[in-house]
Amino acid sequence: MKKRGRLFWTAVSVLVLAGLVVFPTMWAPVWLLSLAGQIMAFALFAMSFDLLFGYAGVISFGQAAFWGIGGYAVAIASRAGGGAIATLLLGAVAGILLAAALGLVEGFILSRVKAGYFAMVTLAISQILLLLASSQNLRPLTGGSDGLNVYVPRFLLVGPATYYLLFAVLVLSFVVLYRFVRSPAGLVWRGMRENESRIESLGYNVLAYKVAVNVVAGMFAAVAGMLYMLVIQIATPELFGLSNSLDALLMVIIGGAGTLVGPVVGAVILVLAEHELSSIGSSVPFLSHWLILFGLMFILIVMAAPRGLMGTLDKIRDSI
């Protein structure tokens, strides 16, 4: 029974992946590719958050800080180089390093404080980055509250090139993250989530593991922010906003925390819903306040189905 179930899921994933590779060669309107790109960027962002929240049990309300750092790194580099690939890559590397540095700092804070405090500190840090990005004094660098246009290299504008780049990065990141959470370190992270003092008394260096999970999650979130820039091609201070951190949280919680696949499902649902609701909202005034619906949905899911879609599916399967 179990073996057959596994075969079934493998077949489904292979089919889905193949479908995602093939469909742009047959039918690829611009809006669809852009929507798919947004979904993939958010999927990676949510996966990075799942590493933190779902596996290590860390609540952060400021994951958007990394997302914004990645986005601005690419935006600034693309303007400096006029879309040249070399500067863009340089910017990407700088963004990842910056994200790692911030992850390091936050990781040390995390090791000093308890859960609720950490949520607060990360929220404050992302809020400061938002203020800095929109400040008048830094306008030459960040474009102030107007933001920065992103110049995408020409080869990425040909057909579904951006789509395939994003798809490749997403699949690669998934494999890397999957290896991470299945590694001995992943086991320690899950152990920290369940019982931190137990892990500490087993002789593990909890501080090092906390710093590590923050750095890794931050780096992947920065990469996700970069991918997002390639799709929407403008960096605004709102990248750092609470709504993006909350989006990641919502995607992870809807899809199922601690599953890595769940956040991807959550990203598909949420981005599609936002897209649909914001277009319906222009004709049905009530739905233009769809953010409220999202918030209510978030509260309900946290209270009623904390394991999310994938977790609940697992639970149902286990009980059958």
Binding site: G57, I59, L242, L246, I292, F298, I299, V302, M303
Partner: peptide
């Protein structure tokens, strides 16, 4: 965890 998450959700709903 649940309380922190739900109160943040309430913050979001009320602010909107």
């Amino acid at each position: 965890v649940v309380q922190v998450l739900t109160t943040l959700g309430a913050f979001y709903v009320l602010s909107e």
